[in-house]
Structure formats: structure tokens, C-alpha cells
Design a protein around this nucleic acid. Structure first.
Length: 304
DNA sequence: CACCATGTTCCTTG
DNA sequence: CCAAGGAACATGGT
């Protein structure tokens, strides 16, 4: 469930539940998610610590804790990777198969579970320093965005996934924002016209805000079973068991009609990731053929 | 069995 | 040093 809107909703959900709670026991079942923090270091730091605040930076969850009244604040960084979840449950409740870290706070467990273990739960916060601006903050103006784009010849879709450019978009919202802006995912970043930059800047923010709004109005079950939990960008539906369904316009909709013009949505691969777009609403540049696109060279890789 | 998956990081090549 | 491309990480769904 991990792009900016999902993390934002999760942070808003957890913040009031966690603040004031004190960790009594720390259990690590998959040490790799802590790296480079060691199990011992995490346990020593967190045992007896109280949650003071929780916020979000890009797709990261930033937990702030304090041990004792005067002690310094410590920061715990969380990331959901592709399949991570975080939630509180009764300490009696059985733990999920892929629980990576469990923090017992009184009668409740704060659980970080992650099926694929791509997520993070660490005291090392250095990655935050490499993140670009928050797309929904005032500092992130269209001019700032355009300036950043002008320094790259890489396809715009790929740049949108670069967390150093702007922090928080992932593969879903990158395609969604480009569709809303009616910009082709293949255009080299620095080739976007000024008005295209402006449209994309606006569309990114609209798409992210829309997802947060929708997520806020849907009854999510953070610890629940079943797919779709914690995922959103939902709208009401009479066809699904939950009564809600995702409202994505192009993501994972190849072969289906474009919601604007009914042209068939296409899928192709960029930087080893799927991109979805409407060839009519998001036409590529005419004129120059792009080389190195749609056909890859045979780089024979050698093993180390 | 084959392929695909919401993310980040490391390695290689140019 | 930088940019770009791809594989790796680990598990599950279709």
C-alpha cells in the first residue's frame, strides 16, 4: 500500500493511537528490515521509550520517541516497501506470518508486517537527506518542479519516480498524474513545454490530494485480511464485497477504455516498470523517432 | 512453470 | 563525478 497518500492516511490513523504509548518489549523477527541498525541497538533504544510524534516524509513514516522525561528524542524511520503494513492489535491476537518487528505497548502490540520484507524499520535516518521536496508543500512550486526537470533527459515517467526530484510518487500515481495532465510518459523531462510542466505539477498535486481525501472517507482495516486493505483511491461500488473499489483511471487498466475518450489504454515498460497511458489523450512527440525506446539492446551482463 | 507486483539500492556501463 | 539501465532483494497471486 505504499505511496504518499497511503502513507499519509496511515500516519493520520496511527498518530493518535501511538502518541503517549510506551514500548515495553521489542521483538525482531526479520533483522534485515532494521539494517544498518542492529537488533540489540533497536531493543536498547526503544525499550522504555514513549511515542511523542509521528509524521510523514515522502513515503517514510517518521516516529519520534523519548526515553524518560529529559532524554533526547530518538527517531525511528519506517517504510512499507511494497507490501508492508503497520497496525496495533491486542497482544493476545496471534501474529501474522510475516511479522518483521513487534513492539509491545502494554496490552497492545504495534506490528510491522511485510510479506516481501522490502520495507524498513530503522534508527538510521540518513536516507531522508536525499529526498526531494514534498509535492504538497508550498515550497514545491511549478517553477521548482520545472527547474528540476530541466536537468534531465530521462523520460518524464521515470523522473517522477525519482524521490530526489520530488518525494512520494510511486508507479501508480506517476501514471495517474501523467494521464490527468495529458502528458506522454515518454517525453524527456527537459523537453516538456512550460504549460506541460504546469499541467503536470497541478495534476500530481490533484491526484495525491484526491487519493488522500478518498482514503480518509473509506473504512480501512489496517490489520484485516484480504487484498485491498490499506489500498485506496477508492470510490463507492455496489459490485465489490467492501462496497468500495479503486478509482484509478489508467493504472493496471491496459486493454480497457480510456475514461476520457474510450481509446484503449496501453501498457509498456520503462526502467523495468509498467507504465499505463492513453495513446490519444497523451500523444508522444511527432517528428523525431526516439531511439532506444521500445527495443532494448542486448547487454550481456557478466557475473561478479 | 512463467510472469507479474504499490519500492529502494547497488552495480555496471558509458 | 554523473546519468542511465538493470538486477537484486523475497514472497505470493494469477
Amino acid at each position: 500500500m505504499p505511496e504518499l497518500p497511503e502513507v499519509e492516511i496511515l500516519v493520520r490513523h496511527l498518530e493518535p493511537l501511538l502518541v503517549g504509548k510506551t514500548i515495553e518489549e521489542v521483538h525482531v523477527r526479520r533483522a534485515k528490515v532494521l539494517a544498518p541498525t542492529s537488533v540489540r541497538e533497536l531493543r536498547q533504544s526503544l525499550r522504555g521509550a514513549t511515542f511523542v510524534a509521528l509524521s510523514r516524509r515522502g513515503k517514510y513514516l517518521v516516529f519520534e520517541l523519548r526515553r524518560g522525561t529529559d532524554a533526547k528524542l530518538l527517531t525511528l524511520l519506517g517504510h512499507l516497501g511494497m507490501t508492508g503494513r503497520m497496525y496495533l492489535q491486542d497482544a493476545q491476537t496471534s501474529l501474522p506470518k510475516h511479522a518483521a518487528v513487534i513492539l509491545r505497548c502494554g496490552s497492545q502490540n504495534f506490528v510491522f508486517e511485510d510479506t516481501r520484507y522490502f520495507g524498513r524499520f530503522t534508527l538510521d535516518t540518513t536516507v531522508l537527506g536525499d529526498l526531494g521536496p514534498e509535492p504538497l508543500n508550498a515550497e514545491f512550486t511549478a517553477a521548482v518542479f520545472g527547474e528540476a526537470l530541466s536537468r534531465s533527459g530521462q523520460a518524464i515517467k521515470i523522473k517522477l519516480l525519482d524521490q530526489r526530484l520530488v518525494a512520494g510518487l510511486g508507479n501508480i500515481y506517476a501514471s495517474e498524474a501523467l494521464f490527468r495532465a495529458e502528458v506522454s510518459p515518454r517525453i524527456p523531462a527537459r523537453r516538456l513545454a512550460g504549460e506541460e510542466v504546469a499541467r503536470l505539477w497541478k495534476a500530481m498535486r490533484w491526484v495525491l490530494r484526491e487519493a488522500i481525501t478518498r482514503g480518509s472517507t473509506v473504512p480501512l482495516r489496517y490489520a484485516g485480511e484480504g487484498r485491498g486493505d490499506g489500498l485506496f483511491y477508492f470510490g463507492r461500488s455496489t459490485e465489490t464485497p467492501t462496497g468500495y473499489e479503486e478509482q484509478l483511471r489508467v493504472y493496471d487498466r491496459q486493454g480497457r477504455p480510456c475514461p476520457k475518450c474510450a481509446t484503449t489504454i496501453k501498457r509498456f515498460v520503462q526502467a523495468a516498470r509498467s507504465t499505463f497511458f492513453c495513446p490519444k489523450c497523451q500523444p508522444g512527440r511527432r517528428g523525431k523517432a526516439k531511439r532506444g525506446e521500445g527495443r532494448k539492446k542486448d547487454s550481456l551482463k557478466t557475473r561478479r
